[in-house]
Design a binder for these strands. Sequence first.
DNA 1: CAAATAGTGTCTATTAGACAATATACA
DNA 2: TGTATATTGTCTAATAGACACTATTTG
Lengths: 226, 226
Amino acid sequence: MQGFTQPLFSVDSVLFTVVDGRLKVLMVKRAQSPYEGLWALPGGYVDVAQDVNTEATANRKLKDKTGIEPTYLEQFKAYSGHERDPRGFSVTLAYFALIGYQDAQSQIATVEQAQWLDVASLASVSIAFDHRQIITDAQQRLVQKALYSMLPVYCLPAQFTIGQLKDVIETLIGRPIQRKSLIRRIESADMLEELDEMAITGKRQAKLYRVKAGAEVHHFQRNLEG
Amino acid sequence: MQGFTQPLFSVDSVLFTVVDGRLKVLMVKRAQSPYEGLWALPGGYVDVAQDVNTEATANRKLKDKTGIEPTYLEQFKAYSGHERDPRGFSVTLAYFALIGYQDAQSQIATVEQAQWLDVASLASVSIAFDHRQIITDAQQRLVQKALYSMLPVYCLPAQFTIGQLKDVIETLIGRPIQRKSLIRRIESADMLEELDEMAITGKRQAKLYRVKAGAEVHHFQRNLEG
DNA sequence: CAAATAGTGTCTATTAGACAATATACA
DNA sequence: TGTATATTGTCTAATAGACACTATTTG
């Protein structure tokens, strides 16, 4: 086949959610060397007997290490080089995932070594490998997508109000947006459906929405202001 | 380290150029099994003794197999699974590259097994692995980027006219655009500089432009019409 | 001057931002 | 009824499309 060493190949996932106006990332405490005891992204090696592809690896490792099955998962970026793992040249394929906080909490409860860390406070946390850089890059991608797509709906539970979606988008992009602009985009995207139920989040009740079955993430022709 | 088989990991590049209103992709004829004699993307295995990361692998393999050093190279997407290579579970990390046709021709001359294939005519060509799918995906990405960024400048030689850039963009996105819109975008992107020289491509001479030294690919807030 | 390509001026269409106006629910 | 949140109406700003107009070069 070939005469020289193959790089060590792994898959890692950056699973984000938004809660109380803060962006959180799910991390696990490493049980083994290297970087034992440090926080790391949930991930691991492909099991060629079990995984049909690397996306399956990402989902399996998330489920095994944290209990969570994300509502959104997309391939993000590969990181490679000699420096990122003391064991030698390695490649990790990073996936980018989203889930609503409440949906996650019902799945995560029993797994103690998995925790939501505040992305804004990561500077004071010890992080394994180059996972700090991966999180930073993934966050930038999430912010960009929040400006031109409906992706942020996957940071919410299955049913949500426009006000909750507005809060999530504002948290992601770090500045307020016009509710009117969001409503116009929801209408033109045709990706959500209005439910009969209402939610009591403020004084007046708000309409509840959910993602239409089989809907693709809508991309707009124009960004929200960056 | 770990007790089970690692997937076979490789790096492939989709190098595009535009010539005479046609999108071309650079492919090489496979000299060995599997898929001996079929066209494949230039790529190969990481040499951990030589490559600092997978981008270095992409550049090295392009240089070795085709003689070309692209002016633009970005990581694109990983493809994985049991089906894509008869030797077993494999992962290939695909890069996406651009070069001006004239610049490429001066480098490619001596390598005979590398050829520019017309992307619109690939249906009638026998292609190895899942490289046909990779090319299709990369083309879609290129079209999207042509709609919201200045990326198409890297399909041209170092010096070019607005008319040539317009032709390239129209080839990529498959429909005419307004010259006026392109000029407005060039001015607001602030990524090109006007040269003193003029080019004779039609009746009236046209100003020559080049990419400013160290310029980043500009992204616009709005797409050209899709 | 006619023809062809390069480049400019300007009007329209679309959609995001701003913010006023109205609606609803509850104390 | 007053207040807070939800929702709608409408004006402005920014930028892409359309297209007429001017400029340059060659035959």
